[in-house]
Amino acid sequence: MKKFEGLGRRMSDTMEIMKVEDLCKIYGRGEAVVEALRHVSFTLKKGEFAAVIGESGSGKSTLLNCIGALDEPTSGRILLDGQDLFAMAEEERTIFRRRNIGFIFQSFYLIPELNVEQNIIFPLLLDYKKPDARQVEEILEVLGLQERRRHLPGQLSGGQQQRVAIGRALIAKPKLILADEPTGNLDRKNSQEVMELLTKASRHYQQTILMITHNPNLITSVDRVMRVSDGVLSDLGGNVNEKLS
């Protein structure tokens, strides 16, 4: 696999790319009410690779869905590059989301009718933009999918499918990539490869990534770890292994 050399952008340590302010999400009513997120606030800097860990049902997926504007919070604000996601109209938010947020899902969610290359450039196609052939070539090379560019998702292994999903998340150079248990459906070797790719993307593209996982082994290479427990977020900082132990 090719390194990300030459693709890198200048990193600005201080540039705040995302700000979550006092985020609450409540499901249900009356006695069945569930507070999935309680007054969550944090910021992410440009190029930061952060992980959110937590037990199943702790609220980490809810947090990711709200940040990705897939789910609407009950209260609070999410600012991406200074823009309030939920102050926009639905159509505007969708367009903003596909230009500024890349998604990597546990179940990949590739379009079965599109081949590897088409799946990668899908966000650009939705924007009616002509993809830069050099950039596409570079991503295919980095992901090790050049040979399989004409393959359909059904003809790929799980690890390859997830690599396509990473390529799709990177192609539009979004301000933020959200990865929801990206290795949840993969074996150990493929999980390792995917994590390497994400880390490289973060380092060399200075791509901001927020990943949620319940696997403590995956967070060794991230810059910062946060934990969600019963809807409350606590920042564990950068020196993860020490704090987790």
Binding site: Y109, P112, L152
Partner: peptide, 18 residues
Amino acid sequence: DTVFAAKRAAHTRWMHVE
């Protein structure tokens, strides 16, 4: 759901992807 039906890729070159 993700691996059903498709046997060949859609033609996205000549028209909008949707």
